[in-house]
Amino acid sequence: MSQTQVEQASQRIASLLQEQTSRWADIDTAQVDRLDNAALYLLCGAGLVELRFRGRGWTDQIALDFEATASGVWIDYERQSILPDEVRRAVPAWGGRAVAVQLQPMLQARLTTLGQETRRQAETDADAFVLALFVCKHPVRGRVTVRIVGNESPAPGAVPQDVIAGGGIVQALQDMVTAQRDIAAAVRVGGGPRPQLPPVEATHNADFTIVKWYGTQYTFALGVQSQTVQALWGEWEKSGLGLHQQTIRNQVDAEKDNFRLDTVFRNHPAFGTMIQKAGDGRYSLAPPRSKQKTAVRQNHV
């Protein structure tokens, strides 16, 4: 990309972020230009935008329609993706079989909670290039949920390995990689450091054993504690709401008959602060009413 093209790509990333809201909005990837598609996948990869799309998946025997919701890096430039795994999870009979996926060009997008916060910060604290650099440099772990719609039919052909096609995704991923590389290169030749976006106030490591929550760092035991935080975090990013502890139990420890969050987090400093009760048996992540100075708190397990 030339310097002008880098500036155009940065502006499209910033503009697309400002155009999104917390409500689902339709996007026809076959009608928008390549730069917009690349910007959309970059915002999704940074966890700022969530995508909802439909497609058709099949093994070597059966084909089915599905709907998926995805955020983070759920697919990379080589089309390696967690989507086939989630399709197999939704169709247990497909376990151990290769899955082909054909995506529809029409999808929906909305801001995650992190995206809403970043959008507010970008409105006053950063130019388009700084935002684009932040997006390119801060990919987050991908998440996909799949719901089978139906419309079963014989498979269109053999599936030797997992593959994803359609929806203009191949070109979008190639353009995304080009934008990432050239925006990062523009910093190296730009003559000095640029201002940074304000730090994101809620973040976590890959396995949710370390969380920075509005100025306070918490650690969680690997296993039930970290998986519970992951479940609550996923719901918080999607809706800003919480989950019933039995829903969490089904996700993280379905064999346990008496699953209670006050037991899981007994004597943990995050319980009652970051993790708060939201009704009978319901819990949610709760940002503080006022920001606190950074402190490091260790769990007691």
Rank of each mutant, 00 (worst) to 15 (best):
N250G: 14
G242F: 03
A9R: 00
Y218I: 07
G242A: 09
E50I: 09
G281M: 11
I210R: 06
Q246P: 01
F265A: 01
V49T: 12
L48E: 05
M176A: 13
V135C: 00
R110S: 05
I248Q: 07
E152V: 08
G166S: 12
W24M: 04
D182G: 03
D60I: 01
Q292D: 06
V135Q: 00
E86M: 10
D257W: 06
G47I: 02
L241A: 12
S226Y: 12
E7G: 11
P288D: 13
L107S: 01
G72E: 10
I82S: 12
Q161E: 11
W74K: 03
V264P: 05
W94L: 01
L222R: 15
Q116A: 13
L241N: 10
L131N: 03
H138D: 01
V187S: 12
R249P: 04
Y77S: 15
K277V: 14
L40T: 05
R120V: 06
T273V: 10
V177F: 15
R34E: 13
I148Y: 01
D127A: 08
I27W: 01
R249G: 06
V146A: 02
F129P: 02
T118G: 00
G55Q: 02
A128G: 04
A221L: 15
G55T: 07
N205T: 01
V189W: 08
L114I: 05
T209E: 07
W58D: 05
G281K: 11
L261T: 12
A202C: 06
D162G: 04
V99G: 01
G150N: 06
S81W: 01
A186G: 10
R249T: 07
G115T: 03
N205C: 03
W24R: 04
W236L: 09
Q161I: 02
Q174E: 12
A39L: 13
Q298K: 14
I75V: 14
L243N: 08
R266H: 12
W94D: 01
G167S: 11
F271E: 11
L285M: 12
T273M: 11
M106Y: 04
L51G: 03
G150A: 02
A221S: 14
I13R: 02
L131I: 05
T216K: 05
E67R: 13
A132Y: 01
V73Y: 02
V229N: 06
L285N: 07
Q230A: 14
A14N: 03
